[in-house]
Amino acid sequence: MTSEYFSPRALRGLNRIGDMLIPGDAGLPSFSEYGCSEKVDDLVAYAPAEDIATLNTVLAVMAVAPTAVLRWLIERMTAVTPDQSGTIASLMRQLNFGLRGILFSLYYGEKAGSQYTGPDPLEVIGYQVRRVE
């Protein structure tokens, strides 16, 4: 698995944080089982270069950070509200939007990895859209 924008370590970090947010449940694959990180370039190719560089660094750190630290980070970033002031709160909100935006866009974006053979998450939650040309 390679990416034009993310290092191999950053991709491991993406799968790691992805599995903590989306661990899989009966019938639903975990983020890494689904294999969608293979297609992360589909999404980040259009983001500002500065943002991609920052995310690359953050994900690379997440690849090696202790699990307890990542859990603390997830708790903080998902619990922060728009009304909390301060630099840390602002950083947590940026992480929350940025990380979860990519993870959910991949997971609910019909971007199964090449090795995945199970049901698509969209199918499991019942999302079917008829498109009449």
Binding site: L43, A47, D51, S90, R93, Q94, F97, S105, G109, E110
Partner: peptide, 26 residues
Amino acid sequence: PRLEGDASAQMYWGGGFELSHDASMA
């Protein structure tokens, strides 16, 4: 783009959304 992730990435500034300076609003 047929899917929302691809559409967000390809058809919005910021590759999806832009945040206010303190990320309190997208």
